[in-house]
Every structure is written in C-alpha cells, then in structure tokens.
Design a protein around this nucleic acid. Structure first.
Length: 460
RNA sequence: GUGGAUGUAGCUCAGUUGGUUAGAGCGCUUGAUUGUGGUUCAAGAGGUCGUCGGUUCGAGACCGAUCUUCCACCCCA
C-alpha cells in the first residue's frame, strides 16, 4: 500500500455494531416523535448559500461549509475583488451552495416555500446529518446527525408541555434515568435586563450568567462588571445567583424579583403554567428544573429555552436542547409564525448509553443461526431448511464455502452467532439436522419440523 | 479562530545520553485435530517508526513544517 487512505478531519466510519446501536437510538426517538403526532420531512444536504448565510451569527457563517462553484469559477470574479484577496468578499463570487448547518433554518425555508400545502400547526420531525467546519473534540464532529422535532404555527404553551413529556418518554424508553430537563424563558432574561435598568446589556449579562455553575459567582460578577454592568444593577439581581428550592419556590422568588418588569412576569407565568400541567402528570424518569442561567440560542429564542443534562453519573454536557422562536419564518418573508422545537444529540446520547451499558444485549440485526457448509450436496440440503427458517423470521445464513470445520465454527464464534446447524451425509440419510448451541456446547439431532420449532423457541 | 499535548505492527503500548538487523502482549494465518468452535502447544506473516524537509559519519529519538487525534478557550449537538 503506497499510502494509507484516510477520511477528513472530524468525520467517522461506523462499524456494524455502531450502526446497529445508532439505529436503535434513532428508531426509539422516531417512534416517540410519531406517538406525539410529528411527521417526517427531509431537506437537501446543501442549500443555497444565501439561505444559510447570516442566520447563525458571524461565528456561524465561518463554520458553514461552502461548496465551490463548478466550472471556471474564477473567470467571473471582478479583477478588483480578486486582487484584494479578501475572503469575505471573494466567497460570494465563487460560492452559491453550502452544506446544511442545522435543521431549523432549512425547516423555516421549507415552511415558507410550502406554506400553501401545509396544515397549521405543522408538526415535523427530521433526522439528517448536518455539517460544521468546527474544530473537532470529543463528542463533537464536523459531520453529525441532528434529531429535531418542531411545531410551527401555534403559540400555545401546550407545545412546551408536550416537548417536556416527549423528552421524558424518549429517555425513559432508552433506559437513561435521571436526566434533568432544564427550562428557562427568554422573557425572564429580558426582565432581568429591565430590572437592572440596562436593557442593552442583556446579551453580556446572560452570556456571563450562563457560566455560573462552571466558574462560580465571583467570576461571573467579575465578567459582568468588565462588560460595563454596574455594581448596583448586579446588586439588584443578587438573589438569582443563589436561587434555590424546588420549581415552585423559584417561581415565587422570581415573581418578587421581576415585579417591576411586565415582560419578566410574563415569562414567569409561562413557566408556572408548564410546571402546573407537568405536576398533574408526573414525568417518569426525567426531572424538570427551572434554571435561569440557561441562555443558549439567544439570537433566536424568544420564549422557552430547553436543555437536557445527562444523568450526573456520566460526565457529559447536554444531550438535547431547544426553545421557542416567535417569527421563525420571518427571515424568509412569512411573518407571525411562532415555532418551538427540540433537538436530540445523537452522538452524546450514544456515549451516555455506552458508558452506562444500556444498549440492548441482543442485536436485532445480528445473525442468529449459521449452517455449516460440508459440500455442494449438503449445502443444497441445508439451503431448504435455511429458506424455511428465514420465512419465519430467523436471521440465518449458510457459510458460503466448503471450508474447514474449524474455520466455519470460528466464524460463528467471532460473530457471536448463538446457533449452528450441521448437515452431513449422515443427516441427509436420516432427513435430520444437528442443531448446536454455541454457548452451552450442547447439540441435538432433529427432524425439520422439530428444528423449526426449537429455533423458534430459542431465538424468536 | 487562539493556546497546549499526541502519533512506533490490526489493537494497547515498550524502545536508555542519537549507535549493528525496531520489540512485547493481544489479535491474525497455518499446523497438532479430514464432522465440532472457545482452552493448550508449536510455527509463521505483519512496521520506509503519521508525512515532508533539515541537523548529523549515523535519526524512531534532535529541529522545522504539515496532517491526525485529544485537551482548554470560543461556540455548540
């Protein structure tokens, strides 16, 4: 081999085991999406450059994979732009397509484009890969799947309630106990800025506040002051650094704190409603927690903000997130469409399940039975039983070559195939099959109907 | 995008201040065993030491660049 082939940075190959496990997670999520009335859509891997640019902030624009135009693309570039060597100016001249960066913006585009065919509120789910030109880290890749569910065209808080229940249903189903669904509301954060009397500092304030559990109260206050937030303002909001108690108690404290802010109180009310409904129908394994430091996606979220933390036993960040964005489709010209949605972090969930050993032991797709090949005539005889077994739903195969017994048995071992059937001249003469259990080592010789019965009992 | 670590056989890793032919364990192939796998024993295959360049009589080791993976920041799933 001249040089070992490789794959681009931040991309992965998946082995059969990994694909089976990923499919297990995806099919579980999909099942619950459907239970909650979401319908699947798919959108292209790449969109028009203009559709994506400017939607994710300056940082986002940099992380979008751009697709170079075909043909002699440099010919059309004006000389002055070419001479300048300014990438930001040159890029739009040589690029008109870009890889999907997330599923939300393509969804917004989809809704606007198909608005006349859709019945609102429109509930869709979408499970597809997205691409980001990020620097990879553990659990972070340049190509990864997002599993999103969104509702567009309804401002009802029942949607938020349902998403909390959906999270609970999926993680319960996966056996992932002790997840914490953290919820916040953008209106509460706006309320904080109002109470401070520095509404222009909203972003600086929340970005710093978001780091509370990471760097601690002192450092957060330090950062806020360095951003020009006055000590008086911070003092007014001091209670939020030590907010404690259960959901209801936090609500009570926030009501007092935000008494002077109309929008802030509105946010508190919204959370109170969600908590009230959830309280009447308790979650199975997840815990709902009010976390005012939650400040993800501030650029677009306008109401609820969600984030799901993995169980404390695994050191992983969030395994899901979401929120409400009034005017989801406004950027594409359709005003007044409120959207709310959540996302599942497939790769993080995979890591969590792996660490907690929660993947089902029996791999659905794996071969359950192997016919040993003793030669042409024997193979033909075996193939008839093989066909029958497949018909009743057994995953079975015939070793394709008349290889040494040892080799064939080894093959069954390596692939963890639990049963092996041997047919030689003796069995053909008796019209029987010898079924061997590879785990216990026991074997018995059976007629076809008994073989089918035995296999049925063991593997189905 | 900024800063730091890393790379030796399929995998996990040794390799002394630069010095003959680069090692181990596991895995792999073959045999002991022509209808019985996992255990055991024996033999064998497999490396231009990430890549390119430099220093040197001599580089796996030192220097530079580049790529990969990982970590922190930023951001995020």
């Amino acid at each position: 081999m001249a040089q070992k082939p490789s794959i681009p940075k931040g991309t992965r190959d998946f082995s059969p085991l990994e694909v089976n496990r990923r499919n297990y997670i995806i099919s579980t999520i999909k099942k619950h999406f459907q239970h909650f009335g979401f319908q699947p859509i798919e959108t292209p891997s790449f969109e028009n450059y203009d559709t994506l640019m400017g939607k994710y902030g300056e940082e986002g624009d940099r992380l979008i994979f751009k697709i170079l135009n075909s043909g002699d693309f440099l010919k059309k570039v004006p000389d002055d732009v070419y001479q300048e060597k300014n990438s930001t100016q040159l890029t739009p001249k040589i690029v008109e397509k870009a890889l999907r960066y997330d599923l939300t913006v393509p969804f917004a585009r989809y809704v606007v484009q198909h608005q006349n065919e859709l019945d609102f509120p429109f509930k869709r789910y979408q499970i597809q890969p997205v691409w980001r030109a990020d620097r990879p880290q553990k659990g972070r890749f340049r190509e990864f799947y997002q599993c999103d569910a969104d509702v567009v065209g309804s401002t009802s808080l029942w949607q938020e309630v349902e998403f909390v229940q959906l999270y609970d249903a999926v993680f319960t189903s996966l056996g992932l106990k002790g997840t914490v669904i953290k919820i916040n509301n953008r209106k509460i954060l706006s309320g904080f800025a109002e109470v401070m009397g520095q509404p222009d500092k909203l972003i600086d304030f929340t970005v710093a506040l978001d780091k509370l559990d990471k760097i601690g109260k002192e450092k957060v206050i330090e950062e806020m002051q360095s951003k020009g937030i006055t000590p008086e303002a911070i003092h007014k909001l001091a209670p939020i650094f030590d907010l404690s108690g259960n959901f209801l108690e936090k609500i009570t404290q926030l009501k007092q704190l935000l008494a002077s802010s109309e929008v802030g109180l509105k946010g508190v009310e919204e959370l109170a409603f969600i908590q009230k409904v959830i309280a009447t129908m308790p979650l199975v394994t997840a815990q709902l927690d009010l976390d005012v430091t939650l400040a993800r996606g501030l650029n677009y979220y306008t109401g609820a903000i969600f984030e799901v933390a993995a169980p404390k036993t695994v050191k992983l960040g969030s395994i899901g997130g979401g929120g409400r964005y009034d005017d989801l489709t406004g950027i594409f010209g359709l005003k007044g469409m409120s959207g709310v949605g959540i996302s599942f972090g497939l790769d993080r969930i995979y890591l969590a399940l792996e660490e907690l050993d929660l993947f089902p032991k029996t791999q659905e797709n794996a071969t359950q039975l192997l016919f040993i090949n003793f030669g042409e005539e024997e193979a033909l005889y075996a193939a008839k039983a093989l066909h029958k077994l497949r018909e009743i739903g057994v995953n079975a195969e015939l070793y394709p070559d008349n290889a040494k017994m040892k080799k064939q048995m080894n093959y069954a071992n390596k692939r963890s195939i639990p049963f092996v059937v041997m047919v030689g001249t003796k069995e053909i003469a008796e019209e029987t099959y010898t079924l061997k259990n590879m785990l216990t080592g026991t074997q018995e010789t059976l007629k076809l109907t008994d073989l089918i019965g035995a296999v049925k009992q063991e593997v189905l």
